[in-house]
Design a binder for these strands. Structure first.
Lengths: 139, 139
DNA sequence: ATAGTAGTAACTATAATGGTTACAACTGGT
DNA sequence: ACCAGTTGTAACCATTATAGTTACTACTAT
C-alpha cells in the first residue's frame, strides 16, 4: 500500500531543527543537510509550513523561525499543513456503485461515517503531541 | 495527498453483498455489477479476502460465502486484509537523516512512536465496527 | 557589485492505482 | 464427453503522487 508521504516526517524534522537552533542561521541548505535531502525539497515543504502560518522566512538573507511556540504546534498542525487532501478524507471510497443494489445504495454514506470517525481519532491523537514534547525527548 | 486505496471500501462492499445475499449465487460478476467495476478487480480483492480467511469461493461453479459471521468481521480485519503495508506502518518516515545533528539522530525513534500511537487508535476504532453493524444501517 | 539565499518552474524516474484483455483451469448440467 | 459459466492470474496500459534534480529569477546584507 501507499504510505503517507515523508513530507510529513520531513516537515516535523524541519520544525524541530528550527526549534532547537532557535532560528539561528537556520537556512534551507542547513536543514537539508540535517534531513539529508535536496534543498529544494526543504524549500517546498517550508513553503507549505509558511502557508499554514507555522514559520516565516527572512527573504534574501535567509533563515527560518517559528511563528508559534513549540508548545503550541502539534503534529496535527503539521500534518494538515503538508497533507492537503481532497475533502480532508484520508480514506478514499469507490464512486458510482450500483444504486439498484441495496449495498450499492447505502455503502457510501454508511461506510464514510465510520471512516471519518477512524480518521478523526487518529487526528486527535496527533493533536496531543506538541513539537516541544518531541524535542524534549531528544538525547 | 494520496488517499488510502478504494480496495478497502470495495472489500467492505464485497463482504456486505455476500453477507446480505447470504452467499446465494454470489459470483464475482454479480458483485462487480453492484460495485460497478471490472470483475477482475473483484477477483483480485476477493483473493486477498480469501488469504485473510474471511471468505471462501467455490471453484468452478463460483459463488462466495463468509468464513466468519458478520458479527465477527470488523473493519480492521478487512483493512488488514487488503492493505498489506511495509512493517505495518501507515506513516512513512524519511530515511538516513544526518546522525551528526541532534535532530537527525533522534527524529526517527521519537516520531515513530508517536505515529504508531496515532495509527493504533485509528485501527482500534476500525476494530469497533463490525460488518453486521454496517449492514444493519442499510435502508 | 557580489555572494548567499529563497521561490519556482520544468523535468525525470519510480511506484501504486485502477482498469483492461486474455487465457488456463475447474465444475456442474446436459 | 462436451460446454457454459466461473475463478485465478499474467500481462499490459494510463494516470497520478512522490522524491529528487537542474536551472533560473529575485531578494538582501555586506
Amino acid at each position: 500500500m501507499k504510505q503517507i508521504s515523508t513530507r510529513f516526517s520531513i516537515a516535523v524534522h524541519i520544525l524541530s531543527v528550527i526549534a532547537i537552533t532557535n532560528g539561528n542561521d537556520c537556512t534551507g541548505d542547513f536543514i537539508a543537510g540535517s534531513v539529508n535531502t535536496n534543498p529544494v525539497i526543504i524549500r517546498r515543504i517550508m513553503g507549505m509550513l509558511k502557508k499554514a502560518g507555522l514559520v516565516e522566512v527572512r527573504p534574501g538573507v535567509g533563515g527560518a523561525s517559528l511563528l508559534k511556540s513549540p508548545e503550541q504546534i502539534t503534529l496535527l498542525d503539521v500534518y494538515r499543513a503538508v497533507n492537503l487532501i481532497e475533502d480532508n478524507q484520508l480514506f478514499r471510497v469507490h464512486e458510482e456503485p450500483n444504486y439498484n443494489c441495496p449495498v450499492g445504495r447505502n455503502i457510501e454514506t454508511v461506510l464514510q461515517s465510520e471512516l471519518k470517525e477512524a480518521q478523526s481519532v487518529m487526528e486527535q491523537r496527533l493533536a496531543q503531541t506538541t513539537l516541544s514534547r518531541l524535542t524534549a525527548k531528544f538525547k
